[in-house]
Simulated scan of single mutants.
Amino acid sequence: MRILSVLAASLFSVSSFASTVPDDPHLYVQGQAKIQVQPDRATIRVAIVEKSKQLPEAKQKVDDIMAKAIKLAKRFDIEKDDIHAEQLNVYRQTRYNRNTNEEEFEGFRVTRSLTLTLKKIESYPELLQALVDTGITEFNNTEFSVSNREELTDKLKLKAIKDAKLAVKELAGAFDVEVDKLYSASFAPINAPTVPYLRQAPAMKMMDSESGSYKEAYNTGAITIEAQVYAIYLIK
């Protein structure tokens, strides 16, 4: 957002030409804004594991399942750049025989990992079942996210700045002092010996994604996105 970029530049330019904390009387405040949203994409990490004393046999089976999984991902409209198939890993497994005091060969453990980014979140339950059907043997973890997180964060930063302005008015009014001007501001905590004044956080609003039946099948909970701004105001 152009307005936010210009505003952020002006805030940091004020900070760069001022010491961290002024010697003059001042008020140190924190503005914040946050929101809860439903995820609209899922990054799924799975793996194929096969064990056999015949390495070619294990490798072939892993490769076949991987090919099916990639073909399946395309059927779910997952783009090529969102399909990441890792290289083959081979481990030679042995077991210690207490009777003979020797290591005995048990076989080879062959693995390949696959990461998929699903942008049609409503298809998540169906995709999981389809992956199981293809022969995927391990589901490592799924990370849910929001595609427009950067855009939401930019908007929250603007709201955090407004909240900081309200905070300094509230604090100045409580102490019956008059605000002079902004001394410094930053989206990161200012190196100050005191804790900034923080207004009571406003109630978070829930934003629904277009996830449809996905919510009914898998309730992952909302993702909280937040932004803070820290400001020092001189007082008269």
Score class of each variant (00 low, 15 high):
Arg2Lys: 05
Leu4Glu: 06
Ser5Val: 07
Ser5Cys: 03
Ser5Thr: 08
Ser5Tyr: 05
Val6Trp: 00
Val6Gln: 00
Phe12Tyr: 08
Phe12Trp: 00
Phe12Ile: 00
Ser13Val: 12
Ala18Lys: 01
Thr20Val: 09
Pro22Asn: 01
Asp24Pro: 02
Pro25Lys: 02
His26Leu: 06
Leu27Cys: 01
Gln30Trp: 03
Gln30Asp: 08
Lys34Glu: 04
Lys34Thr: 08
Lys34Asp: 04
Val37Arg: 05
Val37Phe: 10
Gln38Met: 12
Pro39Val: 07
Arg41Gln: 09
Arg45Cys: 04
Arg45Val: 01
Glu50Gln: 05
Ser52Phe: 04
Ser52His: 11
Gln54Trp: 13
Pro56His: 07
Glu57Arg: 06
Glu57Met: 03
Glu57Lys: 07
Gln60Tyr: 11
Lys61Tyr: 01
Asp63Gly: 10
Asp64Met: 04
Asp64Ser: 06
Asp64Asn: 01
Ile65Glu: 11
Lys68Trp: 11
Lys68Tyr: 07
Arg75Ile: 13
Arg75Asp: 09
Asp77Gly: 03
Glu79Val: 11
Glu79Asp: 12
Asp81Thr: 08
Asp82Glu: 13
Asp82Tyr: 15
His84Thr: 13
Asn89Pro: 02
Tyr91Leu: 13
Tyr96Glu: 03
Tyr96Val: 05
Asn99Thr: 14
Thr100Gly: 02
Glu103Lys: 15
Gly107Asn: 03
Leu114Ser: 08
Thr115Glu: 01
Lys120Tyr: 09
Ser123Phe: 14
Tyr124Ile: 03
Tyr124Gln: 02
Tyr124Asp: 07
Leu128Met: 15
Ala130Arg: 10
Leu131Glu: 12
Gly135Phe: 04
Glu138Gly: 00
Asn141Met: 08
Asn141Trp: 13
Thr142Arg: 12
Phe144Glu: 04
Phe144Gln: 08
Ser145His: 00
Arg149Phe: 15
Arg149Val: 11
Glu151Asn: 04
Leu152Trp: 07
Thr153Asp: 12
Asp154Arg: 15
Lys155Arg: 15
Lys157Cys: 14
Leu158Lys: 11
Ile161Trp: 14
Lys162Val: 13
Leu166Pro: 11
Lys169His: 15
Leu171Pro: 10
Ala172Thr: 11
Gly173Val: 12
Phe175Arg: 15
Phe175Gln: 15
Lys181Trp: 09
Ser184Ile: 02
Ser186Gln: 01
Ser186Cys: 05
Pro189Glu: 03
Asn191Thr: 13
Pro193Ile: 13
Pro193Asp: 09
Thr194Ser: 12
Val195Trp: 02
Val195Phe: 09
Pro196Lys: 08
Leu198Phe: 02
Gln200Leu: 08
Ser209Asn: 04
Ser209Thr: 09
Glu210Phe: 08
Glu210Met: 14
Ala217Met: 11
Ala217Tyr: 14
Asn219Tyr: 10
Gly221Ala: 13
Gly221Met: 06
Thr224Glu: 08
Ile225Asp: 00
Ala227Ile: 10
Gln228Met: 12
Val229Ala: 09
Val229His: 06
